[in-house]
Design a protein around this nucleic acid. Structure first.
Lengths: 250, 250
DNA sequence: TAGATTGTTAATCGATTAACAATC
DNA sequence: TAGATTGTTAATCGATTAACAATC
């Protein structure tokens, strides 16, 4: 099943849950697609990976389809989440309604800072990383979240793997190594903002001036290079002005 | 430029910044690719969208390439972020080092709750949503973040657009409408966990039993349906057992 | 020059889309 | 039956990959 399809299945599931709560029993591919923000053909193609789930001429049974997607995503038995790192982000995630409310209760929050261990964050108490493995076993945790500084990401991942977890979500952008069979998903929030920054450029935002826009276009018009090895346009020396004429910040 | 390339450029940028900090002056596509976790051919292809940036037989100038990617992503002038929603997630993001430390300082945090307005979160003070537009103008904010309950997401997006922002990052999974020219990026953390849940299935985790695994495979072996319209296997009634024999949780 | 590495090409691979036969 | 909608096919589109000519 394509990766993109899996992501969209999660999105369909959210819409189906809302529809079920609203008492909607039957939905057509067109209606579900509209509510999910995709085309109906793509939706039907996505659902086809799960086998036949609808009735021609009628549509899909909301509850049945919801259960089918939950099954396909492996959500039937539920997941319990442990978070390592009780800093800003970790504490927020521990109390974040968006996890528990969508079927991912947080059962543990861990840190190595003695000043944090023992403090309560919402319904959970911060424990020392030393008891991670024992806690994961006790609460049958299935997903680990890394919310530590970058410098600790690899060590924490190792600890999560050692504790028996095979699914890890990391908010640290550093590349970490995990053994085969362990799924790692990196969520880089700053990178999301950078992508957002890029996409704004073509929309002619006032803060994106002409120099920035044109620098994307003159790539093929580089002047002939000198006979010695040199880079197309030094960013810092010998001149603070780049080839396209814009000043590059230090 | 492909969407996937933009995402990877952000990743290369992070590695280049680390290399620059380490005093590395020149890097080859192979080295940078390894450090970024991609293939070298893909990396060179990605960089080719920015025009020539390296020297054959030598490699890339780290500082030059870093400046070039920053320029392509529109990061040269910097971005200032406002966050709406001073709940768990909003407060954490306001104090999150991963934003300010990567070039996205948070200059405002807003809410409508009188109990929150006026309280300090790190270096910023929570203000009322009523003064959003004035604050965005004053601090020249360029990115808005939605960290409110789902029910407020659309209204808050409208307010951000009205305040002149054209780039919005939303942590609410609900579909919101934005005018043309406004870039919206939805980060659905629960959906990320659902994708993680799926990917664990094929790795044979102990908590994903045989029933779940087999239900993915027997989709094409459905028995002939009856003559009346009915759904392939009711999730709730008349029987709690689906067509493939597995029990579906209510 | 000889060695090394880039930038680009062409082939492969995978995802999306539109159209429509199947069928409720 | 007639109308409606699914599931699937085939064509299109876009991204990835390997190979290599260009060239420092």
């Amino acid at each position: 099943m394509p990766q993109a399809t899996v992501t969209r299945l999660a999105s369909y599931l959210r819409v189906l849950e809302a529809m079920a709560d609203s008492g909607i029993a039957i939905v057509s591919s067109g209606e579900l697609a509209d509510a999910s923000g995709v085309g109906s053909a793509k939706l039907r193609k996505d659902l086809s990976f799960l086998g036949p789930n609808g009735v021609r001429g009628v549509g899909y049974d909301v509850r049945r389809l919801r259960a089918r997607i939950e099954s396909a995503l492996g959500l039937e038995r539920g997941h319990r989440v442990v978070i390592v790192g009780a800093g800003n982000l970790g504490r927020a995630l521990a109390g974040y309604g968006g996890f528990a409310g969508r079927g991912f209760p947080v059962v543990g929050l861990f840190d190595t800072d003695p000043a944090l261990v023992g403090t309560a964050v919402g319904a959970v108490t911060v424990r020392h990383l030393d008891v991670l493995a024992a806690s994961c076993a006790e609460f049958e945790a299935t997903i680990g979240v890394v919310a530590t500084p970058d410098s600790a990401a690899q060590i924490v991942c190792d600890a999560l793997v050692a504790a028996g977890l095979r699914r890890i979500m990391s908010f640290s952008p550093v590349q970490v190594e995990v053994p085969g069979g362990v799924e790692l998903r990196v969520v880089d929030l700053a990178a999301e903002l950078q992508v957002l920054s890029f996409h704004g450029i073509r929309n002619g935002h006032h803060e994106d001036g002409a120099a920035t826009a044109s620098s994307l276009d003159d790539a093929g018009t580089a002047p002939a290079s000198s006979s010695r090895v040199r880079f197309p346009g030094p960013a810092v020396s010998p001149s603070p002005v780049s080839r396209n004429g814009s000043v590059i910040a230090p």
